[in-house]
Amino acid sequence: MNKFQAWIMAARPRTLPLALASISMGAFLAAAVDLFNWQIFLLSALTTTFLQILSNFANDYGDSIHGADSDLREGPARAVQSGYISPLAMKKAMFIFGFLSFACGVYLLLIALPSNQLLLLIFLLLGLAAIFAAITYTSGSKPYGYAGLGDISVLIFFGLVGVLGSFYLHTQKLQWDYLLPALSCGLFSTAVLNVNNIRDIRTDELAGKKSIPVRIGRRKAITYHWLLLLAGIGCSLVYVIINFESWWQFLFLLSLPLLIKNGRAVQQKTSSSELDPYLKQMALTTLLYVLTFGIGHLFV
């Protein structure tokens, strides 16, 4: 493997659909009320993509330093642990992508909120919090991912902040029922993390990483996974029922067979190598859910 391939591996392209899912959901909701802005969408997508890569780099670095990525790990090879990228080079890359995330986010806010200094400050603080969360998930002296708090962080940033924040930048307005599709995005994104954590349950336990599956055991983690999937679909169903205008709004149910396939795989696949492809499958299913939900609402 050459250096370029190692950096691509460390960036984990299969997780990038999640960076686009919540931003796209907010954009679709804005388009449904005729307030979509292409410039805001593209800048939002670029900012969150930088954030996702930053998070992946920090995770590669942090897990190698703290021991979750070891020779016992059964998932895909990690760049730092495998020696393809040095810890120092990875730390420099984290700084670069942290700066890119911040710079792109500031430009986005200046475009979307040019005359509201208070809101600009609030969104700036949210952006800094997102950067901090991306870095400290598995890096630093007390990474919160090792305390089992990753699921809450994903629900907040890939769901509530991502969807509602994106929608607000387009429209400068919010309404309470948008919490439901935002929660759906967050719950499905949390399910992606749960697949990852069930896959790594043995090595995480040995490294002292108290993920949800490590804390509650594999059997209960499978039940938890089904609850994430069902709650995600349930939130969207409630939203459509409350705002029903056309049967097109149920188009997102096309993603249901893929969600069921993912849940059954998590339940039946016992080896890490068998389960690993379903991390990518769940990420792509989340993006498909957003696309079908959004397209369905554009036909209303």
Results as ranks from 00 to 15, higher is better:
residue 1 M to G: 15
residue 4 F to R: 06
residue 10 A to W: 07
residue 13 P to S: 04
residue 15 T to F: 11
residue 17 P to M: 03
residue 18 L to M: 13
residue 19 A to V: 02
residue 19 A to I: 07
residue 20 L to D: 01
residue 20 L to C: 09
residue 21 A to C: 07
residue 24 S to Q: 04
residue 24 S to C: 06
residue 25 M to Q: 06
residue 28 F to H: 05
residue 29 L to W: 14
residue 29 L to N: 06
residue 31 A to T: 13
residue 31 A to D: 04
residue 33 V to H: 14
residue 34 D to A: 14
residue 35 L to N: 14
residue 36 F to A: 13
residue 42 L to N: 14
residue 49 T to R: 03
residue 51 L to R: 00
residue 51 L to G: 13
residue 54 L to S: 05
residue 55 S to R: 09
residue 55 S to T: 13
residue 57 F to D: 00
residue 60 D to L: 07
residue 62 G to Q: 07
residue 65 I to C: 03
residue 66 H to V: 10
residue 66 H to A: 11
residue 73 R to C: 08
residue 74 E to P: 13
residue 74 E to H: 14
residue 75 G to E: 12
residue 76 P to A: 12
residue 84 Y to T: 02
residue 86 S to M: 10
residue 87 P to L: 04
residue 90 M to V: 07
residue 90 M to S: 04
residue 91 K to R: 15
residue 91 K to L: 12
residue 94 M to Y: 04
residue 96 I to F: 13
residue 98 G to W: 06
residue 101 S to V: 02
residue 104 C to W: 07
residue 111 I to V: 14
residue 112 A to L: 08
residue 113 L to P: 09
residue 120 L to K: 11
residue 120 L to M: 10
residue 120 L to T: 11
residue 123 F to W: 07
residue 124 L to K: 04
residue 126 L to I: 13
residue 132 F to K: 11
residue 133 A to Y: 04
residue 136 T to Q: 10
residue 142 K to T: 02
residue 144 Y to V: 08
residue 146 Y to W: 11
residue 146 Y to M: 00
residue 149 L to V: 05
residue 151 D to L: 04
residue 151 D to Y: 10
residue 152 I to K: 11
residue 157 F to G: 00
residue 157 F to T: 00
residue 158 F to M: 07
residue 160 L to D: 01
residue 164 L to M: 15
residue 164 L to C: 02
residue 165 G to F: 04
residue 166 S to K: 14
residue 166 S to T: 15
residue 167 F to K: 08
residue 170 H to F: 13
residue 170 H to T: 10
residue 171 T to A: 12
residue 172 Q to T: 09
residue 174 L to C: 10
residue 175 Q to L: 10
residue 175 Q to A: 03
residue 179 L to H: 05
residue 182 A to T: 00
residue 185 C to T: 08
residue 186 G to N: 03
residue 187 L to R: 00
residue 191 A to W: 10
residue 192 V to S: 02
residue 192 V to M: 01
residue 193 L to F: 10
residue 193 L to D: 01
residue 197 N to S: 09
residue 200 D to K: 06
residue 201 I to D: 03
residue 201 I to A: 00
residue 201 I to T: 02
residue 202 R to E: 11
residue 210 K to W: 02
residue 212 I to K: 12
residue 212 I to R: 05
residue 216 I to H: 12
residue 222 I to A: 01
residue 224 Y to W: 08
residue 224 Y to R: 12
residue 226 W to H: 11
residue 227 L to Y: 08
residue 230 L to S: 08
residue 230 L to I: 09
residue 231 A to R: 07
residue 236 S to E: 13
residue 237 L to N: 10
residue 237 L to W: 12
residue 237 L to Q: 05
residue 239 Y to R: 11
residue 241 I to K: 11
residue 241 I to G: 09
residue 253 L to W: 07
residue 254 L to N: 07
residue 255 S to T: 11
residue 256 L to E: 13
residue 257 P to Q: 03
residue 259 L to V: 00
residue 263 G to Y: 05
residue 263 G to K: 08
residue 267 Q to K: 11
residue 268 Q to V: 04
residue 270 T to F: 06
residue 271 S to V: 02
residue 271 S to K: 14
residue 280 K to T: 13
residue 282 M to I: 05
residue 283 A to H: 03
residue 284 L to S: 02
residue 284 L to N: 08
residue 284 L to F: 14
residue 285 T to F: 02
residue 286 T to D: 14
residue 287 L to P: 01
residue 287 L to V: 03
residue 287 L to G: 03
residue 289 Y to W: 15
residue 291 L to W: 06
residue 294 G to V: 08
residue 294 G to W: 08
residue 295 I to N: 08
residue 295 I to C: 06
residue 297 H to D: 01
residue 298 L to P: 12
